[in-house]
Each structure stands twice: as C-alpha cells, then as structure tokens.
Simulated assay, not measured.
Amino acid sequence: MSLIMTYIGSKGCVMAGDKRSIGFLGDKSQRELLEEDLYSGKIKTDEKLLQRAGELDIHLKIVDDGEKVRNLDKVLVGEVKVRATHETNRKRIYATTNGYHQVELTGSEIKNVKSGQSSIVIFGNKITKEIAGKQLKKHWKSKISLKEVGKIFKKVMEDVAKTTPSVSPQYDIFIIHPQMDHKQAMELLRTTIISDVKELEKWRNKLKEEMLSQQRDIQMANRIITHGEVGRVKKVEGDKVEVILSEGVEALNMDWNVLAKSGDTIIMKIEEPTSLSLGDLVVIEEENLCIKKNKTPLSCNIILCKSN
C-alpha cells in the first residue's frame, strides 16, 4: 500500500502521499494470493477487494488516516514500511531544495542510502508506480512552477485512487522552497536524518517498554486469585483482622511488587462486627473476599495472587 511522489528541484520541493493502510488477516497462502491480485492491478475497486477477500476467507482492516509524508520545516519526509514478523522495514525519502536522500532502515538501523540533487522519486507498489509514472508524463511540462507541480501531484493521486484500492482518495501534500545550494542541502539532510532516526529509536524503545509492561500486566493479572483459599485468621482487634497467608499465596501492591509471601501476616478489615475465631479460613468465592464459615465480608488494599 502507498503512493508517495516527490519532486526535488532548484527552487524547492513538493511531496504528496496517500493515507491508506490495509491489514490482511488470514491464511498466509491466501493472503499472498490476494496481495498478488491487488498489486498486479487485477483488483480495481474497494468493492472488488472486499469481494475477493471474502472468497479467500481473508479479513481486511482498511484505514485512511496514515501519515506517510511529513513537513520538518526545510525538509520533507516520506515513508513506506513493511512489517515482518519480528521487525519493520522502512524506506524513507528526505528531500529539500537541490537535494534528497533515500534511506532504507531495518528497525531504527540505517541499511542503505541513495542520494541525488534533482529528480522525481516515486514510492509505491508495481501498479501504483506504473500508473503514476504514466500520468506524470501525460501532464508534465518542460518549465514548471512548484505550484503547478502540486496541482499535477493532486491530479495523479486522485487518478491512481480511482484505479487501485491500494491507494486512498485522501492524501497529504506539502510544498517548501528554502533557498540553498546542493552542498547546503546535503548537510541539512544529513543532520535531519541523524536527528529523525534518533527520534525513531527513542519511539521504538518506548513502544517496546510499553509492550513489555502490558505483557507483564497480563501475566500478573492471570495470577490474581478469583476463587480459593487465601489464609487463616491469626488475630482480631476491632475492625482489623490479621491473616496468615496460605501456601502458594502472596500479596502484591498495585505495581506488582511483593509485599508478603506465604506464611507472612497481612492486615484485612472486617466491614461489620462479628464473632471470628482464630484459625477461621479466609477465602475468595465468586471474587468476594470473606470468612468461609459464615461469608463475613473482608477487604484489603492489596492484590492477592498465586505465587510463582
């Protein structure tokens, strides 16, 4: 999915990118058949795409809110990416007046860089690049302003979107015209790429931490006791009940840190005064913490979990 077009000239730079993203869920071999039909141009409308997906038992998630092109003041950035099982491969173009770099990344590591001074660069699948190339040749002029380039890019985006569902009718377009020569452009692009890739690395690390945290939360939540023995009454004083934790039970705080282990004593509160005996069994039944013999409710501000 994607169509990104970039014009790099001596007066400025124009970049346009569609906003479509399609997720394919289903059998791998069937997904590959659907992708082949889509990228070869056999499927020309959203309706035909959904119909073919249904025939192959593939579930599609189609969204048109992607940000594939960005304006970093004096530099425009376009990106297409392919998610593999364990990593994301990215292809980016950084462009400004009189210069551009095409950068290939695996994760946040730069694998390849290709540079130039003036050009028209198209990112996309086979069919989108083919259609866009033909349309650009059709509308292009020998002498052309940045404003006219923008109008042509808009027309090409709309025409391609009518021909293949791999591109959305929605798109972003930017025009910049900073004044600089090729040497200045290369230095600006170099520093911009270094900064941008560092930001990508920070974002990836943060995302990784969040995913690990979520994974831990899920793992810990699965250990929370929703039914069974918790401990036995050790002492009762007013509304406070001391409970010795049973074997295989531990108490944690809201950050999943262990506060008490099996055999340790924790404090619970009894909601209504009642007669309790030492050794009474404390349980969780139907997710309610109580005394087993008479269902007297108890409460505590900790999490009761199964031990590792």
Rank of each mutant, 00 (worst) to 15 (best):
R90S: 08
Q170T: 10
E67K: 15
E229W: 03
M15P: 00
Q51A: 13
E229Y: 03
I131A: 01
R223G: 00
E47L: 15
L146R: 07
I144N: 01
T88S: 04
N112S: 13
D239N: 09
N308M: 09
L33R: 10
R20C: 04
I244T: 08
N294R: 07
I175A: 05
E36N: 12
S108L: 07
E242C: 00
L207I: 11
H182Y: 08
S277E: 10
T6M: 01
V258T: 11
K208M: 11
G107A: 14
S118Q: 15
I93P: 02
F153E: 00
S166I: 05
G23S: 13
Q117N: 14
G17K: 13
I22N: 06
F24W: 05
N301E: 14
S119T: 13
V113K: 05
I4T: 01
F24H: 04
E87L: 02
V230M: 06
I122K: 10
A53N: 05
E237R: 11
G9R: 02
D172T: 08
S119R: 09
K143N: 08
S277I: 06
Q214P: 00
K154G: 12
E209K: 07
W256Q: 09
E286W: 03
I291M: 02
K295G: 11
K134L: 12
S168W: 06
Q51D: 12
Q179S: 15
A251V: 12
E36L: 07
H182E: 11
V249Y: 04
V75S: 02
V282D: 04
S40I: 03
H182D: 08
K269W: 04
T97Q: 08
G133E: 05
G66C: 11
D37E: 12
N205A: 07
D64Q: 00
K28E: 10
I267R: 06
G228N: 01
N222S: 15
E272S: 11
D280I: 02
D27F: 05
I22D: 03
Q117I: 13
K292A: 09
G150I: 00
F24Y: 12
E47N: 07
K111W: 05
K129I: 09
N288H: 02
E47S: 12
N257R: 08
K74F: 02
L33Y: 04
T163V: 06
I62A: 01
E285I: 07
Q51Y: 12
K202L: 15
K306V: 13
W256S: 06
P178W: 03
G228M: 03
Q170Y: 05
K114P: 02
C300L: 15
L33C: 04
K81N: 08
T296R: 05
Y100C: 08
D57F: 09
K162A: 10
D73H: 14
E287V: 10
G66L: 06
K137S: 12
P165K: 08
I291S: 01
R70A: 13
K154C: 11
K234M: 10
